[in-house]
Design a protein around this nucleic acid. Structure first.
Length: 287
DNA sequence: CGTGCGGCCTGAATGC
DNA sequence: TGCATTCAGGCCGCAC
């Protein structure tokens, strides 16, 4: 499930292949993959002949900036992929869009579960797109103090806020659980019970875990690979995600699983606290 | 304002 | 072996 580090990794693998290329044609094999902005028919008519100027990432969105004020925004959701196939590679049944480029290469948009989408916008339409317009700050471009302040006055469980893309952008279930472990905070801790140092430590750990994810080229859970098909390595460093029942890497107590904000959350009841207790509580050494 | 749930969608894993 | 159930979860819409 591509979160910020995975989308960033894919962007980096797409850049050398796409930037400066022209789009010759588009094949729409599943019209439902095109949503928002222009519909599939309009995109089919308007895309050919444009150049791909830049590959950008915002939150978990991949943005392909085209000539003539057109931006393709891809959300990969859980199982979406942007894939640069080998010349002989045939599209499978999950390949919904095929972009044919002027050097004879192709870009596949694939998604087994069809949650993901490609939406085409003008710059002004993108800025007005509600999901895009409401996105919070990029964690890696924002000081941890400023990120921590975005939790001030917020109620609700801390993990729900980490996953709320309007609070901060790009964190999903994996990185939320890992950051909470490193910060020594329970996922179900009430945000209003956290001290200022706890909030700051949490946001510092959010930034660290996202940066380490990028440095590892993402986490390969289930099917994630970059556009060239390479797996990431961050999954090898998980402390808690997907490890319910296994020993805590810090204290060896069995990790437990709870549901917070409708998502499975794994944490250590010994090492992760609820927020109220002493300010002295355990800070976690990373990794 | 916040919470919780169903829906979207399919394949892998699990259960009987 | 085979069929049914559960789980995975980003985001939205809705009820409370």
């Amino acid at each position: 499930m591509p979160e910020l580090p995975e989308v960033e990794t894919i962007a980096r693998s797409l850049r050398p292949a796409l930037e400066g290329r022209g789009v010759v044609s588009l094949e729409v094999r599943h019209a439902g993959a095109v949503r928002g902005g222009l519909d599939a028919d309009m995109l089919l008519r308007s895309l050919p002949g444009r150049s791909l100027l830049a590959v950008r990432r915002r939150a978990k969105l991949m943005l392909l900036e085209c000539s003539g004020d057109l931006i393709l925004a891809f959300h990969l959701k859980m199982t979406g992929r942007l894939h640069l196939p080998a010349p002989e590679e045939a599209p499978d049944k999950h390949t919904h869009l095929i972009f044919h480029l002027d050097d004879g290469t192709r870009l596949f948009f694939m998604d087994v579960r069809k949650f993901g989408y490609c939406a085409a916008f003008t710059e002004a339409q993108l800025q007005a797109f509600p999901f895009y317009a409401s996105l919070g700050p990029e964690p890696l471009d924002t000081a941890p103090e400023a990120l921590a302040r975005r939790l001030d006055g917020r109620r609700g469980r801390i993990k729900a806020l980490l996953l709320d893309q309007t609070v901060l952008a790009g964190v999903g279930n994996i990185y939320a659980d890992e950051a909470l472990f490193r910060a020594g905070l329970r996922p179900d801790a009430p945000a209003q019970a956290l001290s200022a140092p706890q909030k700051l430590r949490l946001m510092t750990q959010v930034r660290e875990v996202l940066q380490e994810g990028i440095d590892c080229c993402g986490a390969s859970i289930r099917n994630y690979v970059n556009a060239r098909g390479d797996a990431g390595a961050f999954q090898n460093t998980f402390n808690v995600y997907g490890r319910a029942g296994q020993p805590c890497p810090r204290c060896a107590a069995p990790l437990v699983k709870v549901t917070v904000a409708g998502r499975t959350s794994t944490f250590c009841q010994e090492c992760q606290q609820g927020g109220g207790g002493g300010a002295g509580g355990g800070g976690m050494a990373p990794g």
